[in-house]
């Protein structure tokens, strides 16, 4: 009878379980709550901490406002930063696909010791942190006359998107049987033709995942962008928001939080769709 719990104990277990989950949820999202509240509060409702104890900071005490959004879009360079980020992101995605698709395919099909060694090696290069290389890169960027240019980022971001995307793509290509391209080649296709006509159309979900992850890696990147870009007009979102939206000693918290919120929402939504693929790719080899 050990396996059957009494009703009381079962209820208690459910309560503890639900409470734990609620705790984790609260811990995860309370900063976002603060972000949302701040983004839409009037300044008179926002900056009263020191003067009025009766004031409840967690609710809207006076009606919400869109002023902070108006400032963000009208009086800051936020949209320019978004455009810069998007430009860098799209070019980097293009370069990444060009390098990572052939590499991922080859690693998936290369059997034997060298194929395995190389794929582990490429995965390891993803783990080389940017904080290790930004100083030599800063010299190299200025030698190439690319300092303060978005092209420096275009050139250097593939150093982390290519290894990561190659690894992910390798996983996808491995899940496609060799017969896919071999039957096409028996029918007279060249290998490139077979890949183009048979393998790639079947890998659209994988390619899409790679595009999304390369883009999010670009949006996330901070160290290189901070080091190479100095003028405010050329900044990316991840550097512009923390470094240049803060004016003098006064924090424009409303607009700052609005910028964080607006940048985060699309990423969060898209990411959620692709997360399972990411985890599957990441744990390849760890889970058998």
């Amino acid at each position: 009878m050990a396996a059957a719990l009494s009703p009381v104990r079962r209820t208690a277990a459910v309560v503890v379980h639900r409470a734990t989950i609620l705790f984790f949820i609260a811990f995860a999202i309370f900063p976002f709550y603060w972000m949302v509240v701040t983004s839409f509060k009037q300044n008179a409702d926002l900056y009263v901490g020191a003067t009025n104890v009766a004031h409840n900071p967690f609710l809207f005490n006076i009606p919400p406002t869109l002023d902070h959004l108006r400032i963000l879009f009208g009086q800051t360079l936020y949209l320019t930063w978004l455009r810069n980020t998007l430009f860098v992101g799209l070019v980097v995605v293009g370069i990444t696909l060009l390098l990572a698709v052939p590499a991922g395919y080859s690693l998936a099909r290369l059997t034997g010791r060298w194929g395995e060694r190389l794929s582990i090696g490429i995965f390891m290069t993803y783990l080389v942190p940017s904080t290790l290389l930004f100083i030599p890169f800063s010299r190299l960027v200025s030698l190439m006359q690319l300092q303060n240019s978005l092209w420096s980022l275009v050139l250097i971001y593939p150093t982390f998107t290519v290894p990561f995307c190659t690894w992910l793509l390798m996983g996808f290509f491995k899940s496609l049987p060799r017969e896919v391209e071999e039957s096409a080649m028996v029918d007279g296709c060249s290998r490139v033709g077979a890949i183009w006509r048979m393998v790639l159309p079947l890998s659209v979900p994988g390619l899409l995942t790679v595009v999304i992850f390369a883009l999010t890696l670009v949006i996330q990147e901070f160290v290189y962008s901070l080091t190479f870009i100095s003028s405010v007009q050329r900044m990316t979102v991840s550097v512009g928001v923390p470094v240049a939206l803060v004016r003098g000693d006064v924090y424009y918290w409303g607009s700052l939080m609005a910028a964080c919120l607006i940048t985060s929402i699309p990423i969060a939504v898209v990411y959620n769709f692709f997360l399972d693929r990411f985890i599957a790719g990441f744990t390849v080899g760890a889970i058998k």
Partner: peptide
């Protein structure tokens, strides 16, 4: 999805928050 939010949002932005 909610639990994942901290990991998904760009670090710099959540750090500003």
């Amino acid at each position: 999805a909610l639990l994942l939010l901290p990991f998904i949002v760009p670090t710099v932005l959540s750090t500003v928050a």
